[in-house]
Nucleic acid binder design. Structure first.
Lengths: 234, 234
DNA sequence: TGAAAAAACTTGTCTAGTTTTAGTTTGGTA
DNA sequence: TACCAAACTAAAACTAGACAAGTTTTTTCA
């Protein structure tokens, strides 16, 4: 693995296990240079990543301050699989595949101007702490992935793409709106039509910019919560 | 200004003015090294910023691809003043100060566990395309900023903090939830109580990690739209 | 002419330094 | 004791290279 990622992951797990507690300083760049036998630029690359993601705040002349750890959230501005979110937040969650359908045209309202393609549709329900909370519609580009096994969809599509197929997911564009529930929402999630839905529509891309999938994620608004970290560039 | 930011801003404005169109490649690292008389690492830092923010996709062996430009949005995962958003999106918008009040305790539900502080409260209404859309409650830390002039609040608080007071805003943590409207929401925004509200509560920090302000931003959900770019780190 | 090899570019990672900027500590002086 | 300046520490920005790993173009030769 790349050196700067090794250091990044070491420090991150140190923060997550509270070896480095919030309010404390991380080891200085120079200390890490000696510990890992790398150049300072490499150490700084790791720090940059941690700072971008809101884990630390570097202060010139002082050191790198560990910020207070994040609270539970559905992340809008990072790419994580549902499995990863559940794991990070220690949630009790189940994943139910409702439907898998081959060779479906991706609906117009998910395309945002891109070309229309055929995809494999996977509909899933996320049950968080016993409550059906999210309905997910994944349209996976059939030029890239074919015949997704049900048990993989039940587990994690991202994990299947990355580990079994060797694909590298790189970036996504997400649109978030609030909408009235459809019949399907009320029916599947067992809610009244007065509960609004948070709808996140996204395009997921590979490193070569090809579109891997379109996703529509429909959340009960009353169970929706998102925490975002943002940094200002001057 | 820092060299890498000069290059970053040059390239960004080139993308925004369509001098570099989406689907095309930016000038190569080497070309930029010669054009700006800087080292390659400096050029790469600029590219890194553009890639992080979703403007380009770098492809090894090929170059830096310009991605399709973003559509209108209220950004959740970046720190921008309302003024900046309006400008970027060419919106017609008015800003009305409703109330300014000194020495107010910041409400518990905005603190997320931080210590309680006294602040100057500024309540504002954002009128987008003639429709009252957003209610903003800003609680500005009175240890840092005192006596904000009404005309500055009418214009842009961020601009006042950064340009008049020389403060450097650095990062923010934002919590997004969907809630039922309060009486004040319906009254000020002239909406029925059946329109849900998108509520964004945030802490804004300075470079030294001190909290500059707490903000509660209440949006009519039917007028809310957010586009986010997310990159996966491997 | 066609295929393979080589050259020329591209970005990615890393090194080992220098100079600048900004806090912290400390020690002397009024 | 209060305060200022100097010394110290640590990160920020930058430089000038090296080599790797891809892509594209050109050349070579069978």
């Amino acid at each position: 693995m790349k050196k700067y990622l090794v250091i990044y992951h070491d420090l991150l797990s140190g923060i997550q296990t509270q070896k480095y507690q919030s309010g404390e300083l991380l080891p200085s760049n120079q200390q890490l240079v000696m510990r890992y036998h790398v150049s300072r630029e490499t150490v700084r690359k790791s720090m940059q990543l941690l700072a971008d993601e809101g884990y630390i705040q570097t202060i010139r002349g002082k050191g790198s301050l560990v910020l207070s750890t994040k609270r539970f959230s559905f992340p809008v501005s990072s790419i994580k699989s549902y499995k990863e979110i559940v794991k990070e937040n220690g949630m009790d969650s189940k994943n139910k595949v409702i439907k898998i359908q081959d060779h479906v045209l991706v609906p117009e309202n998910l395309l945002f101007g891109s070309d229309q393609i055929y995809a494999q549709l996977i509909v899933r329900e996320r049950i968080v702490n016993g409550i059906p909370t999210i309905l997910d519609y994944d349209y996976v580009n059939e030029d890239i992935v074919k015949d997704i096994p049900v048990e993989e969809a039940e587990n994690s599509l991202f994990h299947y793409f990355e580990h079994n197929l060797g694909l590298t997911i790189d970036y996504a564009i997400k649109h978030l709106t609030i909408e009235n529930p459809e019949y399907e929402d009320c029916n599947q999630l067992e809610i009244s039509s007065s509960v609004p839905m948070v709808v996140v529509r996204s395009e997921t891309h590979l490193t070569d910019s090809r579109i891997l999938s379109y996703t529509e994620s429909r959340h009960r608004a009353d169970k929706f919560s998102s925490v975002e970290f943002a940094r200002r560039h001057h």
